[in-house]
């Protein structure tokens, strides 16, 4: 049984269908990248999984339990944490308060002090800035807070939506290194990215989305060498 198993889902914004008959699997301990251009449906897929935009048909199972009809708070409780696109920090709250809100769910709330210590160990910059208002941080630091806030929820599956968005190349490297560290500590990661080269190079597997459909899937190293991907996404 896969950790996350999506079978034939359709997702629509009103009358506009964005995802068509999509199936996908994530095994425990994997890092899986979903790549694709703007409007391919990558973010929508994550929103469907986390319950923000329920799929109109198909099934999503986590630990074998169907979650496609659950509201976001129940999905969080089951262990899927979605770090949304654009960070979406609680801008007028301190860094520490942002992290503490991340541990709101019952499961994570029990050992919040311990988790906070681990997050600070992984992202020491956050401890230096713990009393600063989130809004006043730089983009890279804000992304770190967003990831840290996600980790505070003790995810079994961490979903990252474009963590490198809008960051300088040097910071992008930092972010991907952090993601790698999180994965090495045993958290399964499902990542949506436009930075195809970086995300595939740290992933185990990848899916390529075009117009709301999976057009290609496979081992990350195979995808990197694929001529179609080279041409369409890497510009080589």
């Amino acid at each position: 049984m896969s950790l996350l198993e999506i079978n034939n889902i359709d997702v629509s914004y009103g009358d506009v269908q964005v995802i068509f008959d999509l199936s996908l699997k994530v095994e425990k301990g994997e890092v899986v990248s979903i790549i694709g251009g703007n409007g391919a449906g990558k973010s929508t897929l994550l929103r469907a999984i986390s319950g923000l935009m329920p799929a109109s048909s198909g099934t999503i199972a986590f630990h074998g339990v169907p979650i496609q009809a659950e509201p976001p708070e129940n999905v969080v409780a089951s262990g899927i944490i979605h770090v949304p696109e654009g960070r979406r920090l609680f801008s007028l709250m301190s860094v520490k308060d942002n992290l503490l809100v991340g541990a709101y769910n019952k499961r994570a709330n029990k050992d919040v002090a311990e988790t906070l210590k681990n997050v600070y160990k992984l992202l020491p910059r956050l401890q230096e800035r713990e009393n600063q208002i989130a809004m006043t941080l730089s983009g890279g630091e804000q992304q770190m807070v967003a990831i840290g806030r996600g980790l505070m929820g003790q995810p079994h599956l961490l979903m990252l939506d474009e963590p490198s968005l809008g960051l300088a190349p040097i910071l992008i490297k930092d972010i991907f290194e952090t993601v790698r560290k999180i994965a090495d500590q045993g958290t399964t990661v499902l990542m949506v990215e436009q930075d195809v080269k970086h995300s595939l190079s740290l992933s185990d597997r990848g899916y390529v989305l075009e117009h709301g459909r999976v057009v290609m899937e496979g081992k990350a190293e195979d995808l990197i060498d694929d001529p179609h991907i080279k041409e369409a996404y890497l510009g080589i």
Partner: peptide, 23 residues
């Protein structure tokens, strides 16, 4: 308090708050 922080979080960004498991 946890509830107080959750209330503030919801007041700033409802959707992000629901992604933290807040109803």
């Amino acid at each position: 308090t946890d509830m107080g922080r959750a209330i503030r979080a919801t007041s700033m960004d409802r959707e992000a708050a629901s992604l933290m498991g807040i109803n």
